[in-house]
Design a protein around this nucleic acid. Structure first.
Length: 748
DNA sequence: CGCCGCCCGAAATCC
DNA sequence: TCGGGCGGCG
């Protein structure tokens, strides 16, 4: 009987799967069956007698990990125990062994997310008397985080400039506070694991004897610390198997270095190299377009991805006047495809930034198309969820002052920062955790400072909270929610807060999630639940089976595939993003676009809008440079956007044609400053059919594109006409919507 | 000392 | 649009 684990594999894939001992590098192009190879290889190892617990596999998401485990169990009859992301694996290591490192930290640490980290930075700035206007917490945090992922401590930080000195000071304080609170940020999970393996005598040997086979997926997106960790986990047998694709490296902004994959053979000179360059996913058209795009990157190793798949349809590029029109166009397309029998789960919409999801949500909703948003304003970032989480965190880690002050901020407890500071001070002196001190039954006798009634009440409330039993996740979460009074608080404000209902729903959803977790992980306690919450990726919540269309960022789309893919917002400033102006950053933006295109199996739709809402205002967007890089033979262009495009050639304002298919005409107008419209900001072009080619003016006196003069606003040009309304772009004074029969404008 | 209301500045991507 | 910060008031 043929071995099912080795069935339906190509020669190259087989080589990668059946490799057992020694280092191996698999450079796997998009759609070349990488996941399949990793899965089969682990199954094969188990089949060949390797014990499942001797295998340690690092995947990029928890979802990928659990899918892989399930698949391997199907194939080999047993699932490996240690499959997870770097972060979740490290969290598990640290729970067991962190206390061996000594110092204040122990295995019951809490994990700090972005917001917690920023809170701590702000706190540190305050302690150090540093102006948070001049040194923005966000910027400082990203500098610190970058340093940590490069394994640079505060003492070695920066280039010695005065600014760097200041940041180093904040870094030092930040680290001190984390330590004091027994809190770990995401970087710490990796850094401390490395430190622990290096410093705790005998520990590394213990790990080496436990894990005999290491696999790392998406190796192009590993950072310095992860690299160091790999080196520590790989034993004398050098059983390290990495897979990745440098062209799909999209995380350099958080320290990933695709040179890790380029240098693998230097690290392990006897490494076997397998290149998987046949694509089994996409049509020839899609692959050709992707190949052309990525060629524009200079810092890469030439690779020739090919496919035997059919030619397929050309990529469609649609230009739309506004972001709303863009969303409507996509939603109409989705409806049409659905009519043709395409499943919603076979379609996906990718964008650069989460903020772009709104109009698409609305467009889907108004057409009754069910959808799921991955990430977005992330569930766990919502205020009410964060407030509630603070309550839970304090219970698990009584030293967590960031969460404690959050609890006091979110409800009017009558106790403010000054009083809290006094309590913290005393707790420090007594060597007791703040929350433990507050929740003592004899608090009012122990506390030396001003013992107001409010403080006594708050302490009593803390005491009640502290008595909640944390061993059953579901019961505990429910009880804490009751004790927190958050629900009542939100209800009380519901007349002023239009989002009150949503907030209550979110809290309910959180409780449901806790119940689910309790069901899936019997015996797990609150601490484990919080860890799970901290380490879930957006994409982990993705339901691939349900009959809905998925909306997600290009980053989240990594590793997925869909028959029909929409990539939206192909505009300068968005993709490539305005914060990515360096050549290096721009090449990463291009890889991001490449990743998007290569997700598609059958058809790619790309859209861009000429104008877009930003902070309640309308901004003008030029088409992305990447559009011009797509090969002409592979694209079909639908231009529904640009009134200038149809304007006459001698029109000094219409400079479209000069700059390729997707000229920068809107941008050339230099009106991306304040583009204030006096009309409905949601729909500056109320007439959906305004596109110049088809427009038949009601009053033959004016046409779209006409130059006009107004006694007050001066010279301008008609952007659109509908009924008697004209949207006119004036040289000076921006765009106005005017009634033609009322306003004295003349042609000129 | 703490609360509440108003105003202003902000959103890139994520474990 | 929304959340955080600040200033005035209780």
């Amino acid at each position: 009987m043929p071995n099912p684990i080795l069935q339906n594999l190509t020669e190259t894939q087989l080589e990668a799967v059946t490799h057992i001992d020694g280092p191996m590098l698999v450079v796997a192009g998009a759609g070349s069956g990488k996941t399949r190879v990793v899965t089969r290889r682990i199954a094969y190892l188990i089949q060949q007698g390797v014990k499942p617990h001797q295998i340690l596999a690092m995947t990029f998401t928890n979802k990928a990990a659990s899918e892989m485990k399930a698949r391997i169990a199907d194939l080999a009859g047993q699932a490996p125990k240690w499959v997870g992301t770097f972060h979740s694996s490290c969290a598990r290591f640290l729970r067991f062994d962190l206390s061996k490192l000594g110092g204040e930290r122990s295995g019951d640490f809490t994990i700090y997310d972005d917001a917690d980290q920023q809170g701590l930075i702000k706190q540190s700035l305050k302690t150090l008397n540093i102006d948070d206007k001049r040194f923005k917490p966000r910027d400082i945090l990203s500098r610190i985080s970058r340093a940590k992922s490069d394994m640079i401590g505060p003492d070695d930080f920066g280039g010695g400039s005065w600014d760097d000195e200041v940041i180093a000071k904040v870094y030092r304080e930040y680290e001190k506070q984390l330590r004091k609170m027994n809190a770990l940020d995401f970087d710490d999970l990796l850094v401390l694991t490395v430190e622990m393996l290096k410093k705790v005598p005998g520990l590394r040997e213990q790990y080496l004897s436990r894990y005999r086979y290491i696999l790392i997926d998406e190796y192009q997106d590993t950072n310095r610390t992860q690299y160091n960790l790999m080196k520590l986990l790989v034993g004398p047998d050098n059983n390290i198997h990495v897979t990745g694709d440098p062209d799909q490296s999209i995380y350099s902004w958080r320290g990933a270095d695709y040179r890790n994959i380029m240098d693998f053979q230097k690290d392990y000179p006897n490494a076997r190299l397998v290149r998987m360059e046949q694509n089994y996913r996409s049509t020839k058209s899609i692959l050709a377009a992707a190949n052309e795009i990525i060629k524009f990157n200079s810092d890469r190793i030439e690779k020739k991805l090919f496919t035997d798949n059919p030619e397929g349809e050309k990529l469609t590029i649609a230009s739309l006047p506004t972001d709303r029109e863009e969303a409507n166009w996509v939603a109409d397309k989705v409806s049409a495809l659905r009519q043709e029998g395409v499943k919603l789960s076979d379609m996906s919409i990718f964008y650069r930034t989460n903020a772009q999801s709104r109009p698409f949500e609305e467009a889907m909703m108004s057409r009754g198309i069910p959808y799921q948003i991955i990430g977005g304003i992330r569930f766990y970032q919502r205020k009410e969820i964060k407030d509630f989480l603070a309550h839970l965190k304090v219970l698990v880690n009584p030293r967590d002052t960031v969460s404690l002050s959050r609890i006091m901020d979110c409800r009017a407890t009558g106790v403010g920062p000054k009083t809290l500071a006094a309590v913290i001070e005393q707790a420090d002196q007594m060597g007791e955790a703040v929350f433990s001190l507050l929740s003592r039954e004899d608090f009012e006798h122990v506390f030396q400072g001003r013992n107001t009634k409010k403080l006594k009440d708050f302490a009593k409330w803390c005491h009640r909270l502290s008595e909640v039993e944390t061993n059953s996740v579901e019961a505990c979460v429910k009880q804490v929610l009751d004790e927190s009074g958050l629900v009542l608080e939100i209800r009380a404000k519901s007349d002023r807060d239009p989002a009150a209902e949503d907030r209550l729903d979110n809290l309910q959803a959180f409780v449901n999630r806790a119940s689910e977790f309790g069901r899936d992980n019997p015996g797990a306690n609150l601490a484990q639940f919080l860890e799970d919450v901290a380490l879930v990726a957006d994409i982990d919540s993705w339901e691939s089976e349900t009959e809905v269309i998925s909306l997600m960022t290009l980053h989240s789309a990594k590793g997925l595939e869909f028959p029909h893919v929409f990539i939206v917002g192909l505009e300068e400033g968005l993709l490539p993003h305005s914060n990515s102006e360096s050549k290096f950053a721009q090449e990463e933006e291009r890889r991001l676009f490449y990743v998007g295109i290569t997700r598609a199996q059958e058809k790619v739709y790309i859209t861009h809008a000429a104008t877009r809402m930003l902070w309640g205002k309308i901004g003008v967007s030029a088409p992305s440079m990447f559009l011009d890089e797509l090969p002409d033979e592979q694209v079909e262009i639908i231009d529904l956007a640009n009134p200038f495009r149809a304007a006459s050639f001698d029109d000094p304002w219409a400079r479209t044609q000069k700059k390729g298919k997707f000229g920068r005409s809107w941008n050339d107008l230099d009106m991306d400053e304040d583009f204030d419209l006096d009309c409905d900001p949601d729909d500056p072009f109320p007439d959906d059919d305004f596109m110049a080619d088809e427009f038949v003016p009601k009053k033959p006196a004016f046409r779209t594109g006409d130059h006009v003069e107004h006694p007050v606003f001066g010279r301008g040009k008609i952007l659109s006409l509908s009924n008697n309304q004209a949207v006119i772009q004036f040289f000076i004074g921006g765009t106005k919507m005017l009634k033609l029969d009322v306003v004295p404008i003349t042609k000129c």
